[in-house]
Design a protein around this nucleic acid. Structure first.
Lengths: 242, 242
DNA sequence: ACACGTTTGTTGAACGTTCATTCAATAGTG
DNA sequence: CACTATTGAATGAACGTTCAACAAACGTGT
């Protein structure tokens, strides 16, 4: 009855639990049974796709709905308004970002160099540092002038990351006897990473994750020469001198 | 006859040559005599204002015209289309940016430290690093996904700056006996500056030019310890060792 | 098991608004 | 009188939102 051929959302699609009706996967019926949260995530993903492909200005609800393989009115049912959809999208991206680096730092070894390396590589992680996610994030954050809610979220995200980075830089300074100011150094590193994000976003196929990673690792070597070996970036754990 | 009270363009307004009619500055008549290029610049300035204040999505031709104190159809007369107006605006910003750092580098002393300092402070110059210009630039550049012309301009701008910065880093490396890779270091510095731009754009009143300048100078001290003294950033010109 | 009303998710057409663009009319200039 | 710059109303397209209709799933009583 409907004209939607198939839903073709981007990757990270979770196959539904496959509960009953094992036969031909009655698509229409199975789709309807998916929980509300899944449908919301599907629409957010379609929004990210649209933002990345067409930019903020050209992202329409019709395009989002088409991208998700659903009909026109669907977004207003799940998100009540376009503004709200975009708010939830930026929230999704920020939450994913913060959760990712926090998890990576927790998983890393407790020594200073490892912690620093974890924070810095988290930003360039495969999961976070996709072209579409970067493009969507910049498209949204750039419009934050007119949306105070965005700005607040961005500030929050920033504050958490900066504080953590600064505390690690302080530890490194004590251990390595460096002369730098910890907060200033943390700001410099953080700014460098956002600048590399911008480059990756702008020049997609011309500046890849690996290139950015190389720049970051080189920078760590020159800033923390007693914590990182010159070559690639094996970390020389410091413990002998105080 | 018209309802436009006064034109209230932002700063850098060039007062018209004030040629004849010395009396009360017959506004309407004087305005009409201004050359075409001036009117175009006026409209571009109004566009930057609108982009900064309302964001890309909410920037309309009506708003630009109002900002310039002119009527609705005026933009299409001078720029034929909105797309073209935005193209010319981003071109204006990029040209101003490139001309500024090139002039500052040329004016600076020829030693490595001075050249480096000139390049780096040019980005944070009063003339370039205005909140409205940053906001407008990000708004436009972020939408470059859908506009290949923007991307090409951005690539050009980047290439010039990066090449110059890399060549200076190479000189510094030879002079100072540093271990870093020159291109990688140049990329790191450049990325850091764009990241600081982003912060300034996002947190307007919460992160000022002076703060960013401090971060950059500190970074120069740690990266080029033989070229920059630790305290503020007086540059210790290197000439004695080879 | 089955029938039936309720709830929930979904659709697509309709509405009203906003906006870029066009253009005929007008005013200023040489 | 040409010519150029400017105006403001008209046009038509695009978009967000609303809503009546529909369909599937669930609950209840039998």
């Amino acid at each position: 009855m409907s004209a939607h051929p198939e839903r073709k959302n981007s990757l990270d699609e979770i196959p539904p639990p496959d509960d009953d009706t094992p036969a031909t996967r009655a698509t229409e019926a199975a789709r309807r049974r998916e929980p509300k949260a899944l449908r919301r995530e599907q629409l957010i993903n379609a929004t990210i796709d649209s933002l990345a492909k067409r930019g903020y200005a050209a992202t329409t609800l019709a395009d989002v709905a088409d991208g998700a393989g659903l009909s026109r009115g669907i977004v207003n049912f799940h998100f009540t308004s376009k503004d709200n959809l975009l708010s939830e999208t930026i929230k999704f991206l920020q939450d994913e970002y913060t959760a990712n680096w926090q998890a990576m730092v927790q998983k890393a070894a407790p020594d200073t160099a490892s912690q620093l390396l974890a924070m810095v590589t988290a930003d360039l992680d495969r999961k976070i540092c996709t072209h579409r996610k970067l493009a969507a994030w910049f498209a949204l954050i750039t419009e934050s002038r007119s949306k105070p809610a965005y700005q607040e979220m961005a500030w929050d995200r920033d504050a958490k990351y900066r504080a953590m980075l600064a505390s690690i830089c302080l530890k490194a300074k004590v251990e390595g006897g460096y002369a730098f100011d910890p907060q200033s150094t943390a700001d410099a590193i953080y700014a460098m990473q956002e600048g590399l994000w911008l480059r990756m976003m702008l020049f997609g196929r011309g500046y890849k994750r690996e290139a950015a990673l190389g720049v970051v690792l080189d920078a760590l070597c020159t800033i923390f020469p007693r914590h990182f070996a010159a070559g690639g970036t094996p970390l020389a754990i410091k413990a002998e001198d105080q």
